[in-house]
């Protein structure tokens, strides 16, 4: 298992220079107040992991990996674990940078606001990746982009319709409850969503003809 995780992490490492440059640009923009760093979390982690899928697909790694011991069993699991490691690392970096920028600009750290925003971004990241991965395993990274754009477009239209005609008062009550325990609720939700996504991806991969 460790070998398969290492493979993804080494692929990420080989793109580290580009990532560092991107990060510097965003930090400068954040200093100037042009953007919030927390938005980087979903953007960077999705972008990095998508690129690993593209390289895998281009070199037919998914077929090659099956010729290795426990390759079929561990390949999908390793991708999810690498994602979790990447999300943890990027969250730590962005949290530290956000604190530093906040302190440098205002001489104080707006702890509650920063943690809240980063947690929101973290949730969005997990949600996005949990949705993207099974799509990639099913359609491949190239087709998955088109499928994803179509789905997002449909969600936007349906969402717009729902906002206009649905009564949201029961949902607001639930959100008020969540406000008290939001960290626990979000953490559990993230784990459950990611696990369901993993199981779906595993099933798709297991049945896939290479």
């Amino acid at each position: 298992m460790l070998g398969f995780i290492k493979k993804d992490l080494l692929m990420i490492k080989s793109n580290i220079k580009i990532l560092a440059i991107l990060l510097i640009i965003y930090v400068v923009m954040a200093f100037q107040g042009q953007m919030d760093l927390s938005f980087l979390l979903p953007f960077i982690s999705v972008m990095i992991m998508m690129s690993t899928f593209s390289y895998d697909s281009y070199n037919k790694w998914d077929a090659y990996v099956i010729s290795l011991p426990d390759g079929r069993k561990n390949s999908v699991k390793a991708k999810y674990l690498s994602t979790i490691i990447l999300i943890i690392i990027t969250t730590i970096i962005i949290t530290i940078l956000s604190f530093t920028i906040s302190y440098a600009k205002t001489n104080m750290i707006d702890f509650e606001n920063i943690v809240g925003t980063i947690f929101g971004s973290l949730f969005a990241t997990v949600l996005l990746q949990s949705f993207i991965y099974p799509t990639i395993y099913k359609f491949g990274p190239e087709k998955a982009r088109i499928v994803l754009m179509t789905i997002i477009f449909c969600i936007a239209i349906i969402g717009g319709f729902i906002i206009q005609y649905v009564d949201f008062s029961p949902i607001i009550k639930i959100l008020n409850f969540i406000e008290t325990y939001w960290i626990i609720v979000f953490l559990i939700a993230m784990v459950v969503i990611l696990y369901i996504s993993y199981k779906i991806s595993e099933k798709i991969y297991d049945k896939k003809q290479m």
Partner: peptide, 30 residues
């Protein structure tokens, strides 16, 4: 699979990796 070595036509490690990377990956697989 612990006992077989495989070369497949056009299927291999992602091309951004190096021979050194392959060593550190494979020593954790075999």
């Amino acid at each position: 699979k612990e006992n077989i070595g495989v070369v497949l036509d056009d299927m291999f490690f992602p091309e951004i990796l190096t021979p050194n990377d392959i060593n550190s990956i494979m020593k954790n697989i075999y």
